[in-house]
Amino acid sequence: MNSIKSEKQISVAEAAAEIKNGDTIIIAGFTVWRKPMAIMYEMVRQGKKDLHLIMNNPSIGVDILIGSGCIKIWESNYCAHEIFGKIGNCFGRAVEEGSIIYEDYGHYHTVLRLQAGATGVPFLPGWSCLGTDLLNPEYDMLGRAGLRDGSNPRIPRKKFEIIEDKFYGEGKIVLVPAARADVCIAHVQKVGAQGTVRIEGQTFACIEAMKAADKLIVMAEEIVPENELRREPGANTIPHFRVDAIVECPFGAHPTGVFGYYDMDGRFISDYHFKSRTKETFKAWIDEWVLGVKDHNQYLDKIGGARLTSLRSNSSLKWSTNVVRR
């Protein structure tokens, strides 16, 4: 078999085109791991505007989208590059300039919002954040922007609510609203030709993220025969009928890493962090690495075969034993 036929398969460019200006989006992954970078780069090339982002732990991809003017609303809990950069520079600049609306939550509350979206309820309770500025009524930034009037079905009428537990009498507990997105984009190891999703290693908040959007686009390192994944259904995470479109893109998460496939490219992320420290040098980086290449294949050619090979995971250990990490 030369290729695996799938009616759901679309290209990276088609995947990015599924995201419309003004959409509410969720991006799966965790900081510098398993981010759908190829689609995010393509979103920059397609000049997306006014996106409303709800996700946990953004890093380089979202920083690039913010620097490129694609994001209007950021609802999250973090934006940096782990040990490769203490802040997303474009994110930090946009917050300091007031050019994006930022709504801060804690990590668990962000995940609860995704879980609520995934499970179809309007909110879920969680105990953290009591006593902090994350629940400061003055710091409701979507409210301050006049966007909590109920006219946008993707924006809840409140940032949070605090109630008394009436079931066990355990006192005050925080409710956070469901994330209800138009589209989720994710990057995973394997997807079956019909759309069944297989994640290997840690799942982060990807399963909740993938279930919380109306449309789900899954990019994978490999499209594999559906029956291959169905030999071990217990290891699969999302059933085929929930997946609207699939994209095959090896190294599609670069410079972030994929368990069992390749390490994140720390040198690349550090270099991005350095280059993104001013608007001018960021623009030059984008011109070189995003707008200057026509697609992800050209981008990978530019990275170079030897570099990519050094990132490749050891098939037994699931991480690279050849990558230079310092």
């Binding site: 732990n57 999250s76 809990n77 973090y78 934006c79 940096a80 203490k86 802040i87 997303g88 994110f91 930090g92 917050v95 300091e96 007031g98 801060d104 939550y105 804690g106 990590h107 668990y108 509350h109 105990w127 953290s128 954040c129 009591l130 902090t132 500025d133 994350l134 400061n136 710091y139 301050r144």
Partner: peptide
């Protein structure tokens, strides 16, 4: 989260991440 006035910060830092959750629970 941020240095200075949250509404007009002098310097933004990464944000809570799991800091608040771990410290609360």
């Amino acid at each position: 989260t941020s240095i200075g006035d949250y509404m007009h910060p002098a310097k933004r830092v990464p944000g809570s991440g799991g800091n608040v959750d771990i410290n609360c629970l």
